[in-house]
């Protein structure tokens, strides 16, 4: 299954990645090989059509869910400790030269 550069760019946009022309060239070739590798699962074992769900067979009952009790939030200082905030907000210049 060959994947085109345009396909790669479309996928990349979904997860906000961009590639230079040279990178794209290399990446597309590598990706072809990776997809072919992933595709080996389709060469054997016919899968059923059941619905798949979250991990494993484990399931919790309603009673095991978290009860609705407020826990203290963290200080604004901590929440913003990894960025330069502005008046308590996360702050983002919309464009920068």
């Amino acid at each position: 299954m060959a994947i085109s550069k345009t396909d790669i760019e479309k996928l990349a946009w979904l997860v906000r990645l961009s590639f230079s022309d040279e990178e794209l060239e290399r990446f597309t070739a590598e990706f072809d090989e990776i997809i072919a590798f992933a595709d080996t699962i389709n060469q054997s074992i016919e899968g059923g059509t059941e619905q798949i769900r979250s991990v494993g067979a484990r399931m919790v009952s309603f009673d095991e869910l978290r009860s609705d009790e407020v826990a203290p939030s963290l200080s604004n200082e901590k929440i913003l400790s990894n960025v330069e905030g502005y008046n308590g907000f996360f702050s983002l210049e919309r464009s920068r030269k």
Partner: peptide
């Protein structure tokens, strides 16, 4: 993201997005 992630991480993100 393009500056911050290395090639292997990008490859895996792309494969994951594709599947």
């Amino acid at each position: 993201r393009s500056e911050g992630f290395g090639d292997e991480v990008k490859r895996r993100i792309m494969l994951g997005t594709y599947v």
